[in-house]
Design a protein around this nucleic acid. Structure first.
Lengths: 195, 195
DNA sequence: TCCTTTCTGGAACATTTATTCCGTAAAGAT
DNA sequence: ATCTTTACGGAATAAATGTTCCAGAAAGGA
Protein backbone atom coordinates (compact mmCIF):
# COMPACT_ATOMS: atom_id res chain seq x y z
CA UNK A 1 0.00 0.00 0.00
CA UNK A 2 0.99 3.55 -0.51
CA UNK A 3 1.25 6.59 1.63
CA UNK A 4 -2.03 8.06 2.89
CA UNK A 5 -3.17 11.60 2.16
CA UNK A 6 -2.46 14.03 4.95
CA UNK A 7 -5.80 15.81 4.53
CA UNK A 8 -9.50 15.00 4.42
CA UNK A 9 -10.96 15.68 0.99
CA UNK A 10 -14.22 17.05 2.37
CA UNK A 11 -12.44 19.36 4.77
CA UNK A 12 -10.40 20.80 1.93
CA UNK A 13 -13.54 21.17 -0.17
CA UNK A 14 -15.23 23.07 2.64
CA UNK A 15 -12.29 25.46 2.70
CA UNK A 16 -12.47 25.77 -1.09
CA UNK A 17 -16.16 26.64 -0.85
CA UNK A 18 -15.37 29.44 1.57
CA UNK A 19 -12.48 30.80 -0.48
CA UNK A 20 -14.38 30.84 -3.78
CA UNK A 21 -17.51 32.09 -2.05
CA UNK A 22 -15.60 34.98 -0.57
CA UNK A 23 -13.52 36.09 -3.55
CA UNK A 24 -15.18 34.57 -6.60
CA UNK A 25 -13.62 32.34 -9.24
CA UNK A 26 -11.59 34.97 -11.06
CA UNK A 27 -10.95 36.92 -7.90
CA UNK A 28 -8.80 34.26 -6.22
CA UNK A 29 -5.45 33.08 -7.54
CA UNK A 30 -4.01 29.58 -7.56
CA UNK A 31 -1.42 30.82 -5.09
CA UNK A 32 -4.08 32.01 -2.65
CA UNK A 33 -5.89 28.71 -3.01
CA UNK A 34 -2.75 26.76 -2.13
CA UNK A 35 -2.19 28.96 0.93
CA UNK A 36 -5.83 28.93 2.02
CA UNK A 37 -6.37 25.22 1.55
CA UNK A 38 -3.21 24.30 3.40
CA UNK A 39 -1.91 21.63 1.05
CA UNK A 40 0.77 21.63 -1.59
CA UNK A 41 0.30 22.63 -5.19
CA UNK A 42 0.95 19.09 -6.41
CA UNK A 43 -1.47 17.48 -3.98
CA UNK A 44 -4.06 20.04 -4.97
CA UNK A 45 -3.75 19.33 -8.69
CA UNK A 46 -3.41 15.56 -8.17
CA UNK A 47 -6.54 15.36 -6.04
CA UNK A 48 -8.89 17.94 -7.53
CA UNK A 49 -7.63 18.62 -11.04
CA UNK A 50 -7.35 22.18 -12.25
CA UNK A 51 -8.89 25.33 -10.81
CA UNK A 52 -12.08 25.04 -12.83
CA UNK A 53 -12.63 21.46 -11.77
CA UNK A 54 -12.02 22.36 -8.12
CA UNK A 55 -14.58 25.14 -8.46
CA UNK A 56 -17.23 22.78 -9.78
CA UNK A 57 -16.56 20.38 -6.92
CA UNK A 58 -16.87 23.25 -4.44
CA UNK A 59 -20.18 24.29 -5.99
CA UNK A 60 -21.50 20.76 -5.68
CA UNK A 61 -20.31 20.51 -2.12
CA UNK A 62 -22.19 23.74 -1.35
CA UNK A 63 -25.28 22.33 -2.97
CA UNK A 64 -25.15 19.20 -0.81
CA UNK A 65 -24.55 21.02 2.44
CA UNK A 66 -26.23 24.43 2.30
CA UNK A 67 -28.97 23.96 -0.27
CA UNK A 68 -29.57 20.49 1.07
CA UNK A 69 -30.17 21.86 4.56
CA UNK A 70 -32.64 24.46 3.31
CA UNK A 71 -34.61 21.89 1.36
CA UNK A 72 -34.66 19.49 4.30
CA UNK A 73 -35.86 22.29 6.54
CA UNK A 74 -38.74 23.07 4.18
CA UNK A 75 -39.73 19.45 3.70
CA UNK A 76 -39.76 18.86 7.44
CA UNK A 77 -41.69 22.01 8.38
CA UNK A 78 -45.09 22.04 10.00
CA UNK A 79 -45.54 25.79 10.09
CA UNK A 80 -44.58 26.83 6.57
CA UNK A 81 -44.54 30.63 6.92
CA UNK A 82 -42.45 30.23 10.05
CA UNK A 83 -40.00 27.94 8.26
CA UNK A 84 -39.64 30.40 5.38
CA UNK A 85 -39.09 33.20 7.82
CA UNK A 86 -36.36 31.20 9.53
CA UNK A 87 -34.54 30.78 6.25
CA UNK A 88 -34.66 34.53 5.62
CA UNK A 89 -33.45 35.27 9.12
CA UNK A 90 -30.61 32.83 8.69
CA UNK A 91 -29.50 34.62 5.52
CA UNK A 92 -29.92 37.96 7.28
CA UNK A 93 -27.62 36.90 10.10
CA UNK A 94 -24.96 35.56 7.77
CA UNK A 95 -25.06 38.82 5.79
CA UNK A 96 -24.77 41.03 8.85
CA UNK A 97 -21.82 39.34 10.48
CA UNK A 98 -18.80 41.00 8.95
CA UNK A 99 -16.62 37.87 8.99
CA UNK A 100 -16.86 35.13 6.41
CA UNK A 101 -18.16 35.14 2.85
CA UNK A 102 -21.38 36.94 2.13
CA UNK A 103 -24.36 36.49 -0.12
CA UNK A 104 -25.13 33.11 -1.66
CA UNK A 105 -22.37 31.17 -3.38
CA UNK A 106 -24.78 30.03 -6.10
CA UNK A 107 -26.06 33.54 -6.82
CA UNK A 108 -22.53 34.91 -6.85
CA UNK A 109 -21.40 32.20 -9.26
CA UNK A 110 -24.40 32.65 -11.51
CA UNK A 111 -23.66 36.33 -11.86
CA UNK A 112 -19.93 35.98 -12.28
CA UNK A 113 -19.83 32.98 -14.59
CA UNK A 114 -23.14 31.60 -15.83
CA UNK A 115 -23.33 33.63 -19.07
CA UNK A 116 -19.98 32.31 -20.31
CA UNK A 117 -19.55 28.94 -18.63
CA UNK A 118 -22.18 26.33 -19.35
CA UNK A 119 -20.75 23.77 -16.92
CA UNK A 120 -21.19 26.15 -14.02
CA UNK A 121 -24.47 27.41 -15.41
CA UNK A 122 -25.82 23.86 -15.27
CA UNK A 123 -25.00 23.33 -11.59
CA UNK A 124 -26.41 26.72 -10.62
CA UNK A 125 -29.54 26.17 -12.68
CA UNK A 126 -30.15 22.81 -11.07
CA UNK A 127 -29.74 24.45 -7.66
CA UNK A 128 -32.40 27.06 -8.43
CA UNK A 129 -34.75 24.37 -9.71
CA UNK A 130 -34.34 22.18 -6.63
CA UNK A 131 -35.05 25.16 -4.38
CA UNK A 132 -38.03 26.27 -6.44
CA UNK A 133 -39.45 22.76 -6.22
CA UNK A 134 -38.90 22.57 -2.47
CA UNK A 135 -40.56 25.93 -1.86
CA UNK A 136 -43.39 24.90 -4.12
CA UNK A 137 -43.99 21.66 -2.18
CA UNK A 138 -43.87 23.50 1.13
CA UNK A 139 -46.19 26.29 -0.02
CA UNK A 140 -48.66 23.78 -1.39
CA UNK A 141 -48.77 22.07 1.99
CA UNK A 142 -49.11 25.47 3.64
CA UNK A 143 -52.11 26.28 1.50
CA UNK A 144 -53.72 22.95 2.31
CA UNK A 145 -53.22 23.66 6.00
CA UNK A 146 -54.70 27.14 5.63
CA UNK A 147 -51.41 28.82 6.57
CA UNK A 148 -50.87 30.41 3.16
CA UNK A 149 -53.35 32.27 0.97
CA UNK A 150 -54.57 30.62 -2.21
CA UNK A 151 -54.74 33.78 -4.30
CA UNK A 152 -51.54 32.79 -6.12
CA UNK A 153 -50.50 29.31 -7.15
CA UNK A 154 -47.69 27.52 -5.27
CA UNK A 155 -45.25 27.65 -8.17
CA UNK A 156 -45.58 31.42 -8.55
CA UNK A 157 -45.27 31.96 -4.80
CA UNK A 158 -42.21 29.72 -4.69
CA UNK A 159 -40.56 31.80 -7.40
CA UNK A 160 -41.54 34.94 -5.53
CA UNK A 161 -39.93 33.79 -2.29
CA UNK A 162 -36.82 32.68 -4.13
CA UNK A 163 -36.52 35.97 -6.02
CA UNK A 164 -36.65 37.88 -2.76
CA UNK A 165 -34.09 35.54 -1.28
CA UNK A 166 -31.79 36.15 -4.25
CA UNK A 167 -32.35 39.88 -4.11
CA UNK A 168 -31.34 39.90 -0.46
CA UNK A 169 -28.31 37.78 -1.31
CA UNK A 170 -27.16 40.45 -3.71
CA UNK A 171 -27.97 43.18 -1.24
CA UNK A 172 -26.17 41.37 1.58
CA UNK A 173 -22.98 41.15 -0.43
CA UNK A 174 -22.29 44.85 0.13
CA UNK A 175 -22.91 47.22 2.99
CA UNK A 176 -26.23 46.01 4.37
CA UNK A 177 -28.77 47.53 6.72
CA UNK A 178 -30.65 45.15 9.00
CA UNK A 179 -33.81 47.20 8.48
CA UNK A 180 -33.91 46.27 4.80
CA UNK A 181 -34.01 42.58 5.69
CA UNK A 182 -36.70 43.25 8.28
CA UNK A 183 -38.82 45.14 5.75
CA UNK A 184 -38.52 42.42 3.11
CA UNK A 185 -39.25 39.58 5.52
CA UNK A 186 -42.32 41.37 6.80
CA UNK A 187 -43.74 42.12 3.36
CA UNK A 188 -42.97 38.71 1.86
CA UNK A 189 -44.63 36.95 4.77
CA UNK A 190 -47.67 39.19 4.75
CA UNK A 191 -47.99 38.55 1.02
CA UNK A 192 -47.88 34.80 1.60
CA UNK A 193 -50.58 35.00 4.23
CA UNK A 194 -52.99 37.59 2.89
CA UNK A 195 -55.32 37.43 -0.08
CA UNK B 1 -3.00 73.37 -30.49
CA UNK B 2 -2.48 69.69 -30.73
CA UNK B 3 -3.98 66.81 -32.54
CA UNK B 4 -7.61 65.96 -31.71
CA UNK B 5 -8.72 62.59 -30.35
CA UNK B 6 -10.10 60.26 -32.98
CA UNK B 7 -12.84 59.01 -30.67
CA UNK B 8 -15.65 60.38 -28.52
CA UNK B 9 -14.99 59.75 -24.84
CA UNK B 10 -18.64 58.99 -24.09
CA UNK B 11 -18.90 56.56 -26.97
CA UNK B 12 -15.89 54.65 -25.69
CA UNK B 13 -17.31 54.70 -22.17
CA UNK B 14 -20.57 53.24 -23.47
CA UNK B 15 -18.60 50.43 -25.03
CA UNK B 16 -16.67 49.95 -21.79
CA UNK B 17 -19.95 49.70 -19.88
CA UNK B 18 -21.11 46.94 -22.19
CA UNK B 19 -17.85 45.02 -22.05
CA UNK B 20 -17.55 45.12 -18.25
CA UNK B 21 -21.27 44.49 -17.86
CA UNK B 22 -21.01 41.41 -20.01
CA UNK B 23 -17.83 39.82 -18.65
CA UNK B 24 -17.23 41.46 -15.28
CA UNK B 25 -14.12 43.24 -14.08
CA UNK B 26 -11.88 40.22 -13.59
CA UNK B 27 -13.45 38.38 -16.49
CA UNK B 28 -12.22 40.72 -19.18
CA UNK B 29 -8.57 41.29 -20.04
CA UNK B 30 -6.83 44.51 -21.00
CA UNK B 31 -6.30 42.99 -24.44
CA UNK B 32 -10.02 42.36 -24.91
CA UNK B 33 -10.76 45.89 -23.77
CA UNK B 34 -8.38 47.35 -26.36
CA UNK B 35 -10.01 45.23 -29.06
CA UNK B 36 -13.55 45.92 -27.95
CA UNK B 37 -13.12 49.65 -27.42
CA UNK B 38 -11.47 50.13 -30.79
CA UNK B 39 -8.66 52.44 -29.71
CA UNK B 40 -5.00 51.87 -29.06
CA UNK B 41 -3.51 50.77 -25.78
CA UNK B 42 -1.71 54.07 -25.31
CA UNK B 43 -4.78 56.18 -26.01
CA UNK B 44 -6.74 54.03 -23.60
CA UNK B 45 -4.28 54.49 -20.74
CA UNK B 46 -3.69 58.16 -21.57
CA UNK B 47 -7.38 58.98 -21.56
CA UNK B 48 -8.87 56.75 -18.88
CA UNK B 49 -5.98 55.72 -16.67
CA UNK B 50 -5.66 52.10 -15.62
CA UNK B 51 -8.25 49.31 -15.77
CA UNK B 52 -9.68 50.01 -12.34
CA UNK B 53 -10.13 53.69 -13.09
CA UNK B 54 -11.83 52.88 -16.38
CA UNK B 55 -14.17 50.54 -14.55
CA UNK B 56 -15.19 53.24 -12.08
CA UNK B 57 -15.85 55.63 -14.96
CA UNK B 58 -17.96 52.98 -16.68
CA UNK B 59 -19.97 52.41 -13.49
CA UNK B 60 -20.63 56.12 -13.19
CA UNK B 61 -21.62 56.34 -16.82
CA UNK B 62 -24.10 53.50 -16.25
CA UNK B 63 -25.46 55.34 -13.24
CA UNK B 64 -26.05 58.49 -15.26
CA UNK B 65 -27.67 56.76 -18.20
CA UNK B 66 -29.52 53.68 -17.00
CA UNK B 67 -30.26 54.44 -13.38
CA UNK B 68 -30.93 58.04 -14.31
CA UNK B 69 -33.57 56.96 -16.81
CA UNK B 70 -35.31 54.74 -14.28
CA UNK B 71 -35.40 57.50 -11.69
CA UNK B 72 -36.69 60.02 -14.21
CA UNK B 73 -39.37 57.56 -15.28
CA UNK B 74 -40.53 57.14 -11.68
CA UNK B 75 -40.47 60.86 -10.91
CA UNK B 76 -42.48 61.62 -14.02
CA UNK B 77 -45.08 58.87 -13.59
CA UNK B 78 -48.77 59.52 -13.05
CA UNK B 79 -49.80 55.89 -12.68
CA UNK B 80 -47.22 54.53 -10.25
CA UNK B 81 -48.01 50.79 -10.35
CA UNK B 82 -48.00 51.00 -14.13
CA UNK B 83 -44.62 52.77 -14.12
CA UNK B 84 -43.13 50.14 -11.82
CA UNK B 85 -44.50 47.40 -14.01
CA UNK B 86 -42.90 49.02 -17.05
CA UNK B 87 -39.51 48.97 -15.35
CA UNK B 88 -39.88 45.27 -14.59
CA UNK B 89 -40.97 44.52 -18.13
CA UNK B 90 -38.02 46.45 -19.46
CA UNK B 91 -35.64 44.33 -17.37
CA UNK B 92 -37.50 41.19 -18.42
CA UNK B 93 -37.04 42.01 -22.09
CA UNK B 94 -33.36 42.76 -21.71
CA UNK B 95 -32.86 39.48 -19.86
CA UNK B 96 -34.70 37.41 -22.45
CA UNK B 97 -32.94 38.68 -25.54
CA UNK B 98 -29.86 36.50 -25.85
CA UNK B 99 -27.65 39.22 -27.28
CA UNK B 100 -25.96 41.84 -25.12
CA UNK B 101 -25.04 41.84 -21.45
CA UNK B 102 -27.54 40.55 -18.94
CA UNK B 103 -28.63 41.38 -15.44
CA UNK B 104 -27.85 44.75 -13.91
CA UNK B 105 -24.33 46.13 -14.11
CA UNK B 106 -24.58 47.48 -10.56
CA UNK B 107 -25.80 44.22 -9.07
CA UNK B 108 -23.14 42.28 -10.96
CA UNK B 109 -20.42 44.64 -9.73
CA UNK B 110 -21.68 44.58 -6.17
CA UNK B 111 -21.49 40.82 -6.11
CA UNK B 112 -18.16 40.53 -7.86
CA UNK B 113 -16.31 43.35 -6.15
CA UNK B 114 -18.09 45.19 -3.34
CA UNK B 115 -16.78 43.07 -0.46
CA UNK B 116 -13.15 43.75 -1.37
CA UNK B 117 -13.16 47.10 -3.16
CA UNK B 118 -14.47 50.06 -1.23
CA UNK B 119 -14.25 52.46 -4.18
CA UNK B 120 -16.60 50.33 -6.20
CA UNK B 121 -18.71 49.56 -3.17
CA UNK B 122 -19.32 53.28 -2.71
CA UNK B 123 -20.60 53.85 -6.24
CA UNK B 124 -22.85 50.80 -6.07
CA UNK B 125 -24.16 51.75 -2.66
CA UNK B 126 -25.01 55.24 -3.82
CA UNK B 127 -26.83 53.73 -6.78
CA UNK B 128 -29.00 51.55 -4.53
CA UNK B 129 -29.78 54.51 -2.31
CA UNK B 130 -30.79 56.76 -5.20
CA UNK B 131 -33.10 54.05 -6.52
CA UNK B 132 -34.58 53.33 -3.10
CA UNK B 133 -35.28 57.05 -2.68
CA UNK B 134 -36.89 57.33 -6.10
CA UNK B 135 -39.12 54.32 -5.51
CA UNK B 136 -40.00 55.70 -2.12
CA UNK B 137 -41.03 59.07 -3.57
CA UNK B 138 -43.09 57.41 -6.27
CA UNK B 139 -44.79 54.99 -3.91
CA UNK B 140 -45.62 57.79 -1.50
CA UNK B 141 -47.33 59.66 -4.34
CA UNK B 142 -49.07 56.46 -5.34
CA UNK B 143 -50.44 56.05 -1.86
CA UNK B 144 -51.67 59.63 -1.81
CA UNK B 145 -53.42 59.03 -5.11
CA UNK B 146 -55.00 55.84 -3.81
CA UNK B 147 -53.12 53.70 -6.34
CA UNK B 148 -51.05 51.85 -3.73
CA UNK B 149 -52.15 50.31 -0.43
CA UNK B 150 -51.10 51.98 2.79
CA UNK B 151 -50.62 48.80 4.77
CA UNK B 152 -46.82 49.15 4.46
CA UNK B 153 -44.81 52.36 4.57
CA UNK B 154 -43.30 53.75 1.37
CA UNK B 155 -39.70 53.08 2.42
CA UNK B 156 -40.39 49.40 3.10
CA UNK B 157 -42.31 49.00 -0.16
CA UNK B 158 -39.51 50.73 -2.07
CA UNK B 159 -37.00 48.27 -0.64
CA UNK B 160 -39.35 45.43 -1.48
CA UNK B 161 -39.66 46.46 -5.13
CA UNK B 162 -35.91 46.95 -5.38
CA UNK B 163 -35.16 43.58 -3.82
CA UNK B 164 -37.41 41.88 -6.35
CA UNK B 165 -35.74 43.82 -9.11
CA UNK B 166 -32.32 42.70 -7.91
CA UNK B 167 -33.48 39.12 -7.53
CA UNK B 168 -34.68 39.12 -11.11
CA UNK B 169 -31.39 40.68 -12.20
CA UNK B 170 -29.55 37.75 -10.72
CA UNK B 171 -32.04 35.30 -12.18
CA UNK B 172 -31.84 36.94 -15.62
CA UNK B 173 -28.08 36.54 -15.73
CA UNK B 174 -28.44 32.81 -16.38
CA UNK B 175 -30.93 30.72 -18.30
CA UNK B 176 -34.21 32.52 -17.67
CA UNK B 177 -37.83 31.53 -18.13
CA UNK B 178 -40.24 34.32 -19.10
CA UNK B 179 -42.85 32.78 -16.79
CA UNK B 180 -40.74 33.53 -13.73
CA UNK B 181 -40.72 37.22 -14.60
CA UNK B 182 -44.45 37.13 -15.20
CA UNK B 183 -45.08 35.50 -11.83
CA UNK B 184 -42.93 38.00 -9.94
CA UNK B 185 -44.40 41.04 -11.69
CA UNK B 186 -47.90 39.82 -10.94
CA UNK B 187 -47.28 39.16 -7.25
CA UNK B 188 -45.26 42.31 -6.62
CA UNK B 189 -47.93 44.47 -8.21
CA UNK B 190 -50.77 42.76 -6.40
CA UNK B 191 -48.86 43.26 -3.14
CA UNK B 192 -48.48 46.95 -3.88
CA UNK B 193 -52.17 47.34 -4.56
CA UNK B 194 -53.84 45.12 -1.99
CA UNK B 195 -54.13 45.54 1.74
C1' DT C 1 14.30 -5.15 5.66
C1' DC C 2 13.28 -3.95 1.22
C1' DC C 3 10.00 -2.71 -2.39
C1' DT C 4 6.23 -0.50 -4.34
C1' DT C 5 3.13 3.05 -4.36
C1' DT C 6 1.65 7.57 -3.74
C1' DC C 7 2.01 11.71 -1.33
C1' DT C 8 4.58 16.13 -0.53
C1' DG C 9 7.34 20.47 -1.08
C1' DG C 10 9.12 23.43 -4.01
C1' DA C 11 11.51 24.65 -8.18
C1' DA C 12 10.48 25.44 -12.91
C1' DC C 13 7.68 26.57 -16.91
C1' DA C 14 4.94 28.72 -20.45
C1' DT C 15 1.37 31.92 -20.86
C1' DT C 16 -1.25 35.73 -19.86
C1' DT C 17 -1.83 40.06 -17.73
C1' DA C 18 -1.62 44.97 -16.99
C1' DT C 19 1.09 48.66 -18.06
C1' DT C 20 4.82 51.67 -20.11
C1' DC C 21 7.63 53.47 -23.66
C1' DC C 22 8.98 55.33 -28.04
C1' DG C 23 9.07 56.78 -32.76
C1' DT C 24 5.86 58.69 -35.86
C1' DA C 25 1.76 61.15 -37.40
C1' DA C 26 -1.57 64.69 -37.17
C1' DA C 27 -3.58 69.24 -36.13
C1' DG C 28 -3.84 73.67 -35.26
C1' DA C 29 -1.10 78.40 -33.86
C1' DT C 30 2.27 81.66 -35.13
C1' DA D 1 5.92 76.63 -43.53
C1' DT D 2 7.43 75.74 -39.19
C1' DC D 3 6.74 74.63 -34.46
C1' DT D 4 4.57 72.80 -30.56
C1' DT D 5 1.59 69.77 -28.60
C1' DT D 6 -0.85 65.73 -28.28
C1' DA D 7 -2.73 61.32 -30.28
C1' DC D 8 -1.60 57.00 -32.26
C1' DG D 9 0.26 52.10 -33.19
C1' DG D 10 2.74 48.68 -31.66
C1' DA D 11 6.81 46.80 -29.58
C1' DA D 12 8.52 45.93 -25.05
C1' DT D 13 8.45 44.81 -20.11
C1' DA D 14 7.82 43.17 -15.63
C1' DA D 15 4.87 40.73 -12.78
C1' DA D 16 1.38 37.37 -11.93
C1' DT D 17 -1.08 33.34 -13.24
C1' DG D 18 -2.19 28.44 -13.82
C1' DT D 19 0.04 24.25 -14.30
C1' DT D 20 3.68 20.58 -14.54
C1' DC D 21 7.67 18.22 -13.08
C1' DC D 22 10.98 16.08 -10.13
C1' DA D 23 13.46 14.39 -6.12
C1' DG D 24 12.67 12.79 -1.78
C1' DA D 25 9.73 11.09 2.06
C1' DA D 26 6.26 8.26 4.10
C1' DA D 27 3.39 4.17 4.61
C1' DG D 28 2.30 -0.20 4.46
C1' DG D 29 2.96 -5.34 2.14
C1' DA D 30 6.11 -9.13 1.05
Amino acid sequence: MARAKEFQIDEVLDKAVNLFWNKGYNGISAEELVQGLGLSRSSLYDTFGDKHSLFIQALKRYREKITGDVIAHLDRAENIPEAIKEIFVWSQNSALQATGPRGCFMVNSRIELAPHDSGISDVVQENWQALEDAYQRAIKRGQEKGQIAKSHNPRALARFVLTNSWGLSAYGRGTADKKVFDDIIKIVLSTLKSD
